[in-house]
Computed example of a mutant assay.
Amino acid sequence: MSSYGIRVIYGSWFEHTRGWLSMRESENFLLLSYEDMKKDPRGTIQKICDFLEKKLEPSELDMVLKYSSFQAMNENKMSNFNITPNIMAPHNLILMRKGTTGDWKNHLTVAQAEAFDKVFQEKMAGFPPGLFPWE
């Protein structure tokens, strides 16, 4: 973590996220959160279908649910970075860890969480807090 906050491989997470969120009022923009997907996967898939104006039969929806589950994607080498060259995923980068929400509480100290909150408030000023449904 730098003095500016979290950095992703190709730059600042805050800049990346602010850039996308600045387009959230566009008609071709759909904002989803992992937390919402975990709480209601079927409803989230239906929301995606509505956004894409795509009707799925119940059996198709069940198949999407099955193959988009954390377990299925974690086992699929095409979605879990097992086949990604080291230049794109350096240092054994793991993007799929547990598939749970709120696990950051097991990794950050209270002081680290407070420091993150301070930087987050500064960097994400102007966006409604409801956009970030983190526990």
Rank of each mutant, 00 (worst) to 15 (best):
D36E: 14
L30E: 10
E15V: 06
K39W: 01
G19I: 02
T44K: 06
G19Y: 03
T17P: 07
R18E: 11
Y34S: 04
L32Q: 09
S26T: 04
T17C: 15
S22F: 07
L31P: 03
E15C: 07
S33T: 12
N28T: 03
K38P: 03
S26I: 00
F14I: 03
S26C: 14
W13L: 10
M23P: 01
P41N: 11
L31E: 10
R24P: 02
W20N: 15
W13C: 04
W20E: 11
S26Q: 14
P41K: 05
S22I: 05
R24C: 05
G11A: 09
W20R: 10
G19Q: 07
N28D: 14
K39G: 05
R42A: 15
S22K: 15
I9L: 13
P41G: 06
D36Q: 13
E27P: 01
D40A: 13
G43V: 05
R24S: 09
W20D: 09
L32N: 10
F29L: 05
G19S: 15
Y10E: 13
Y10P: 00
S26F: 03
Y34N: 05
N28I: 00
T44V: 12
R18Y: 00
K39T: 06
E15D: 15
R24M: 07
E15F: 04
L21E: 02
R42Q: 15
S33D: 07
K39S: 09
Y10F: 07
L31N: 06
L31Q: 05
F29V: 12
